[in-house]
Design a protein around this nucleic acid. Structure first.
Lengths: 194, 194, 194, 194
DNA sequence: CGCTAACCGAGACGGTACGTCCAGTCTTATC
DNA sequence: GATAAGACTGGACGTACCGTCTCGGTTAGCG
């Protein structure tokens, strides 16, 4: 037999352990905070050995990043709603929903924090999360440009910076996670510009 | 007048140690990164005992916050430049300069990160840094409203969120710290709105 | 019978580390004295982590007590030499040899000192060392009583107090550890009594 | 120059502080044990600065040794009671009384312990306490020799070793501080010997 | 009567070790 | 070969005291 699946030998990875670890990490970070989250604690709650955690994830933050993907609905609306304005509206509704969802905000804040402190995780977080969100927004902007209803300014990159800047700043620096009216005002600002 | 100064007894705080600690913390965080910054390391480089650090600062992040104030010029332009646009321009020039200054960006990123991980430091960081910056911007916005050249929308609070959101997002999530052209585009967006 | 050994899982205790720690403790106490002996120093010289010391011994004195058992020959002559006098003679020869052996006296003095300062260690030291020595002497006294050559007085308990009192007092309070002539005089006193 | 007192200038030593420190040390060692006794604790309870302790005593054990002299009646009967036996009896009654006196035993045990751990204090403890007791006993033995009722053996030095050995061993190594019947048996042993 | 030496309480200083926690690795027996 | 268990080296944590060094403030003799 040529190629295909490379004929794995020995015991297979336990899906049960994987989910137990992700669940334990997610629950623990909400209960005790990221500062008190430890690999030992995750393993203990998951009922597995530390080695099983280290075998599959390099850092506790990586466990948490995967746990977020499992626990929260990270899908982003990039469907065509007929206009730049409507697309943006749908996109930001999703962002508002996510950043207000039960338990999601603390995890996002912890991941962004760890990304500042550990450069290697920072790279993985950008590639695995931040850049995906930018790419999703870029789909909207590209469609708007093709459609011809994208304002000349600000340039698409700066639009993304402003959108994500507002979302993240509200999350990281204030007690007021982004709400629908804020999103609407931002949309107006970005679309009604001459 | 009786008892203005509360009759200090005992040896006085050593200004020499204080500066040595702040300098050591600032240098170390730039050399090894915030993750590898330790109170032991700070004390060792400063040539003092750990207790002298703990006596005056509750966390390493607090040392760093004070070190930033000593090492970097955190003054913010709130002078009157004749118009809302000119005031905003001066304000953002200051922000650009700060976030591009040698050594400042890593410290700011570390402080924002720690603020997410340690809620108590988070409160101190908001009160001692973030809120001060917002208050400075509020001076400009108040003056513009009195002057009558403040656009009806976005509301002042959202203006601040957009301005600081852009600055911080570029700092935390991208390799592109804020530059002058970005600032100019933002100013246009905020001032030319109908 | 099922399950004699309880099916140990996980890594086994390292005999190498155990011996390294005991050797390090014994060497260090002779080099720097008990007052300057630290768990950190023991671990450093043994080339292991402090946790490995604390995992198996509650105090530095317990390490030293076990090290003494490994390093010094603590066997006590309780063989039958034909008479009470001869048995006592052999017993005290052993005590003299031990208290004059290279490096043993400082360790014994340190252990007795720590037993005064830390009541919990005191209990372990009595049970693990002092009482064993008394029990050995009791074998001689019991045999003498059965044999019929044990003087009516002093009572066996007081004989033990006098024997060990002399040994320890010379060790703790004078520069003259017990010597053979002293032992002989004591034997005469205890056996020739009417 | 003539003059016993060397014309002291400046403020005199505060007798109030001295007594407060001695009392505090004595109380504290009985309350928390010698292991938990600290100069800081002594100074705090005495209501004085640490420097005032260090100015007059090199170690906490020296404070305790002086406190013992102040708090306990350390006088030893060396009066002539007519015979060696009667003198010994009076001497040992004093020793029994002391080692059973409220609060004295823990202090004596602590001092003997510290003497093992700190050689410099050990020298002071021998000179200031142990040797004084031996000298007192030597008075009895000298008088007995002159009187002619001192047995040929054991030699006076060994008599002292046996007497103090019994007292100290019972104090340090057992729960049974010396009692009158033990003392009487010892006296018989030392005086009725052929 | 002012000067100055020596003491006093207070408390910050540079240090050292404590005993704990956790990181990340390694070694078992089991599955 | 992956797993749960658990001991391993290593290193920072935050605390407690050590013994020293200023402080401001008494309390004495001496000039």
């Amino acid at each position: 037999m040529i190629g295909g699946t490379p004929a794995r030998r020995g015991r297979r990875r336990s899906e049960e352990s994987r989910l137990a670890i992700l669940t334990a990490a997610y629950e623990l970070v909400l209960e005790v905070g990221y500062g008190a989250l430890t690999v030992e604690g995750i393993a203990a709650r998951a009922g597995c050995g530390k080695q099983t955690v280290y075998r599959w994830w390099p850092r506790k933050a990586d466990v948490l990043m995967e746990a977020l993907a499992v626990k929260a609905d990270l899908r982003i609306s990039t469907g065509d709603h007929g206009s730049y304005r409507a697309d943006l509206h749908a996109f930001l509704r999703g962002a508002v929903a996510l950043s207000r969802a039960e338990g999601v905000a603390p995890v996002l804040r912890a991941l962004m924090a760890e990304a500042q402190i550990d450069p290697e995780f920072g790279a993985r977080f950008r590639a695995g999360f931040l850049d995906r969100r930018r790419a999703a927004l870029a789909v909207l902007l590209d469609r708007a440009r093709e459609r011809g209803d994208l304002p000349a300014r600000p340039a698409p990159e700066l639009v993304a910076d402003l959108v994500f800047g507002l979302v993240w700043y509200r999350l990281l620096a204030t007690d007021r996670p982004l709400a629908a009216p804020d999103a609407d005002t931002l949309i107006t600002l970005l679309t009604e510009h001459p």
